[in-house]
Design a protein around this nucleic acid. Structure first.
Lengths: 276, 276
DNA sequence: GGTTGCTTTGAATCTCGGT
DNA sequence: GACCGAGATTCAAAGCAAC
């Protein structure tokens, strides 16, 4: 099974992420990007001032019995990821305040060494309709190397300068591309979004360009709509994605099939810039 | 002792933060701003809450032990803060990726309910000199209410709109004032900075204006250079600050004495704006 | 073909008082 | 504690229809 996986340039495997990970060779992955469930704890329904209903994330995969259960889930998948990462491999995890503190703590406790906390600043965040908090305008990406003392992780420092006018790239990223509400958003025949939390390709592009080289093997334990694999295909990186839900697997595979490999290798990513 | 403290408009108490907190009345504080030590090498700060711990880790300061010690330290001061906060009182904690994940996890586990994670975007961050990471361009402020179901915490929603062109204020704050490198930075007779992590007054001003009303009582368990108390004095808020190190106590008290109470009440804070 | 104005929507821990 | 009704509450960008 692992043998077969490695030969493909980009592969989406259907299955439970921890089970599939346990079959993989140790120290075989160059970089892992993980977009785990955020464990949102939404209580009542929410209406906009115009009385329209906000379509909430109510997927079963985002429900956990307790914070302790979420911590155990995090530790389970992340320790498997650590096992299959090369010692100088790096892990990215994205989250919001609902889960990122739990994730960051587990990550440190497992021995990962944090390199940066990147802030994705949204140009069009959903406002706080009731006016009881600040607009939640960002998500956080933790970037960490597997082993603390490995200094030879991949970071394309000079390359990333292009996103900050030739100066050292900063950890605050402004993704001008909309938050997946445009033509990039994958919808079904009814016009409904297929996945409730699809990530923009521009964001993943920064992650992949920064921390991998062409030909590297990227792991995505929570494929969802398949953005990571799609970006890897466009940038000439290999990718192994794992997804539990049949519908998402199909969507991601179809998405991959429509992409010409390496089509992004020559140009740069115009939708992202550093702050100030 | 607590009686005497409360009568003063702004007071800096010299002493161990947990000991002083334990003498305070429960549910007497409207808002707490905490800037705890980030650096795990600050053993003096860490051994205070649990003296028996000091001997145990003295010569074996490996990473796991220091993380656990930092967590215990965090839990110690934060649970005392929770005791003295009013049920609808709020807590702000500032940190970087070195400590904010530990702090956020402890905070949730103690029962605080996160309202926002505010990102302080720096206009002049220190570059990464060796070019092995992204420039660390932000710090994180967690804002949380003591009791999950209290909706009546103080949030001056309409007031804060002034910092985003009359629209709902966002959670990404651009402090245009340099990071305390100008005349605001407190220096000794040799021109050396007195405190290594002095926070800009513009940042604290946003915190105080957003989550308190004039006359409210603010707690700062880690006074340092005294920015919180100084801003409270300028904004007509009462403040109780706690600081262990004599030199900092002196500096903060001298700083307070030079401030005309309420001098900022009329105008707004010109150095901060929302993103985009 | 370009412009204007209306409609829709996005990982959201988003009210309060009476019965 | 659940249910219900009144009342207060939103920003940016995409999509689309109309002109």
């Amino acid at each position: 099974m692992p043998e077969r996986l490695m030969r493909h340039e980009q592969t989406i495997v259907r299955g439970d992420c921890i089970e599939v990970l346990s079959e993989l060779e140790p120290e075989s992955i160059d970089m892992c990007f993980a977009d785990p469930p955020y464990n949102l704890q939404l209580r009542d329904s929410l209406h906009r001032p115009d009385r329209s209903l906000v379509e909430a994330v109510d997927d079963e995969w985002d429900k956990f019995d307790s914070m302790a259960a979420y911590d155990r889930f995090t530790e389970a998948w992340m320790s498997e990821v650590r096992r299959v990462l090369k010692p100088n491999g790096t892990l990215w995890v994205i989250g919001t305040y609902h889960n990122i503190y739990r994730v960051g703590t587990v990550l440190m406790d497992l021995g990962f060494w944090i390199l940066n906390d990147v802030v994705w600043i949204k140009s069009n965040p959903m406002p706080n309709f009731r006016g009881v908090r600040f607009t939640n305008a960002s998500e956080t990406l933790i970037w960490a190397v597997r082993d603390k003392d490995r200094k030879d992780y991949t970071f394309n420092y000079e390359h990333m300068k292009r996103y900050n006018d030739g100066k050292q790239m900063r950890s605050d990223w402004y993704v001008r591309e909309p938050v997946c509400s445009g033509s990039e958003r994958i919808r079904d025949e009814n016009g409904d979004k297929v996945h409730s939390t699809q990530k923009p390709e521009a964001l993943l592009r920064m992650v992949v360009e920064a921390s991998t080289n062409p030909g590297d093997l990227v792991l995505d334990p929570f494929v969802g709509s398949g953005t990571t694999a799609a970006v890897c295909r466009k940038l000439g990186r290999r990718c192994l994605g794992i997804e539990m839900i049949d519908e998402y697997v199909e969507v991601a595979r179809k998405r991959l099939a429509a992409i010409e490999p390496g089509c992004w290798l020559e140009d740069e990513c115009p939708q992202v810039a550093a702050g100030e």
